[in-house]
Design a protein around this nucleic acid. Structure first.
Lengths: 203, 203
DNA sequence: CTTTTTGTACTGACTGGTCAGTCTAAAAAG
DNA sequence: CTTTTTAGACTGACCAGTCAGTACAAAAAG
């Protein structure tokens, strides 16, 4: 009796994630009502509470779900570069591209993530911390490898540089989406690549 | 309208800004109640409504007030460098430092600004657009001057590079505050300066 | 085969509490 | 005297979470 429709619940949850992500990105967590989420997902309010303990729990699982996708995408970009025998700088470049592609595909999720990341005293603070660490660690790993094999300067501060690179991509991409949507992903990628390769100042 | 009474109102408004900024940074706009703001500011609820038309209007004016401070700080960093006869790259470096100092001083404001910047469909969307443009324009101006006098590569895309630089500073600084508060402002400045000067990958 | 039971997924009206904004009368400040 | 602030009661809309009940399919019983 049990194994029959695990699929059905999964589908319902997916619909709820999709409904919640855009609403929360637009209006914020508190301003988004459970009734709205249910309505947009095309289910009854009770279904939300059948599938999730509370509004917060729905949000936390959404967070985990989304960052999981991002981390997987970054990691696979780095691995593919390595398999192809590329340099670590090429791997960073590939990760910038993967990051941009992710944000292009899930702009609402990115928006919501950025909006919540630095909030203190929130129920999901712990979840965010874990999930952030997973994503940043992927970038730090590649930086570390690059310093290790002499490709990158030993002067660099790995955690701070990783944060700066992630920030650069995040903000440039959100700005692109919000204020310069006519630009192509290649334009944005080139601009960021130039900064990474240090060809902004100097020669 | 008299300057005497303007002073008293001004002081009350200032107290309300300070109370609102931390509360909204911590919990978000919707989750912050007017009663809380009034209580933390040490004024009666009626005073909030005597001074501001609504909760949203208080928030919008807070936004204008804060970004005004930031823009002034960035602009004066750029001007001081120019007066000293510094290069445009030095001006950018000085602006990074000014940005970090601002975020160090007003972390709550920065948090709240980032959280709201890319939200769509909000009442204060128009205010944010204007206020963002003012700040980014300061960076774009310096980039333009740098390209003009040959200091910076002609390849660079000014709006995208400006957004990326602002993002780099914003995210690195917030991450510093939230996850690596033991680091000094000089550490953070060095890490970002290295990226700006292109000394991360090779040299 | 047919009937009955059981578990799962979902429904939507309802409730108890919360909060933006209003109002008042009176006091403090200038 | 005018402007600003106070204290707090009040209202009406809104909303998270609950709960009794429906739908339906798989399994157990007859």
């Amino acid at each position: 009796m049990e194994s029959s429709s695990t699929t059905r619940r999964q589908a319902t949850r997916q619909k709820l994630y999709e409904a919640a992500v855009t609403l929360i990105a637009e209006k914020g967590f508190s301003a988004t009502t459970v009734d709205e989420i249910a309505e947009r997902a095309g289910v009854a309010k009770g279904t939300v509470y059948y599938n999730f303990k509370s509004k917060s729990e729905l949000f936390e699982e959404l967070l985990r779900h989304g960052v999981g996708l991002l981390t997987a995408s970054l990691r696979s970009a780095a691995e593919e570069t390595a398999e192809r025998g590329g340099t670590r700088v090429e791997a960073l470049d590939a990760m910038i591209r993967a990051g941009l592609a992710f944000i292009d595909r899930y702009p609402a999720f990115t928006q919501l993530y950025v909006a919540e990341l630095w909030r203190t005293n929130r129920a999901w603070q712990a979840t965010l911390l874990v999930v952030r660490q997973e994503a940043v660690a992927v970038v730090e790993d590649v930086l570390r490898q690059g310093v290790g094999n002499g490709e990158l300067s030993e002067e660099i501060d790995i955690p701070l540089t990783a944060a700066a690179l992630v920030g650069m991509v995040l903000v440039a991409a959100l700005d692109w989406q919000a204020f310069q949507p006519e630009r192509s992903i290649d334009d944005v990628h080139s601009a960021l690549s130039l900064l990474l390769h240090g060809r902004v100042s100097g020669h």
